[in-house]
Simulated scan of single mutants.
Amino acid sequence: MTVNPSRKHLVLLGAGRANLQVLKGLARQTTGDISITLVAPHPYYIESTMLPGYIAGDYTLEDVRIPLDSLVEASGATFVPAHVHALDPATRRVQLSSGDALPYDVLSIDVEPAIEREHAETLMPGSRRNALFVRPLENFVQLWPQLQALSHERALQVAVIGSGVAGAEMAMAVAHALASPHGTRVTLIAGHEPLLEDHPPGMRRRVLNRLKHLNITLLQDRCAGMDGRALQLESGASLVCDAPLLAEGNGAPAWLQQAGLLDDESGHLLINERLQSEHHRQVFVVPEDAPAEIGPVLEANLRTAMQGGSFKKVPLDASRLRAISGGDGHAIVAWGPLSLEGREVWNWKDRRDRRQLLSLFKI
Score class of each variant (00 low, 15 high):
residue 301 N to A: 07
residue 283 V to N: 04
residue 296 P to D: 08
residue 300 A to S: 10
residue 287 P to L: 12
residue 289 D to R: 12
residue 311 F to Q: 01
residue 307 Q to M: 08
residue 292 A to E: 13
residue 287 P to V: 03
residue 313 K to P: 00
residue 280 H to M: 03
residue 304 T to Y: 09
residue 281 R to S: 12
residue 286 V to W: 07
residue 283 V to G: 05
residue 287 P to W: 10
residue 291 P to S: 12
residue 288 E to I: 09
residue 293 E to L: 12
residue 289 D to G: 14
residue 285 V to T: 08
residue 300 A to I: 01
residue 286 V to E: 07
residue 302 L to C: 10
residue 292 A to D: 15
residue 280 H to W: 11
residue 287 P to M: 11
residue 309 G to T: 00
residue 313 K to L: 11
residue 297 V to E: 02
residue 312 K to P: 00
residue 305 A to L: 07
residue 302 L to S: 08
residue 312 K to Y: 00
residue 288 E to P: 11
residue 300 A to L: 05
residue 308 G to H: 03
residue 286 V to S: 10
residue 282 Q to G: 02
residue 287 P to K: 09
residue 282 Q to F: 03
residue 283 V to S: 05
residue 307 Q to G: 05
residue 303 R to M: 14
residue 312 K to L: 06
residue 300 A to N: 09
residue 285 V to H: 05
residue 310 S to N: 11
residue 295 G to R: 12
residue 296 P to R: 15
residue 285 V to P: 10
residue 299 E to G: 03
residue 313 K to W: 03
residue 298 L to Q: 01
residue 299 E to A: 13
residue 310 S to D: 15
residue 307 Q to R: 13
residue 291 P to V: 13
residue 292 A to V: 13
residue 284 F to P: 02
residue 302 L to Q: 03
residue 293 E to C: 09
residue 295 G to C: 12
residue 281 R to W: 02
residue 311 F to S: 00
residue 289 D to P: 09
residue 281 R to D: 06
residue 297 V to P: 00
residue 292 A to R: 15
residue 298 L to T: 01
residue 301 N to L: 04
residue 310 S to E: 13
residue 300 A to D: 03
residue 298 L to Y: 05
residue 306 M to L: 08
residue 306 M to E: 07
residue 286 V to M: 09
residue 299 E to C: 13
residue 303 R to Y: 10
residue 286 V to D: 05
residue 295 G to T: 11
residue 302 L to F: 03
residue 286 V to G: 10
residue 294 I to V: 14
residue 287 P to H: 11
residue 282 Q to I: 02
residue 302 L to I: 07
residue 290 A to K: 06
residue 299 E to D: 02
residue 306 M to G: 02
residue 311 F to K: 01
residue 285 V to Q: 04
residue 304 T to E: 13
residue 302 L to T: 02
residue 284 F to Y: 11
residue 293 E to V: 13
residue 280 H to D: 09
residue 311 F to G: 00
residue 281 R to V: 15
residue 296 P to G: 13
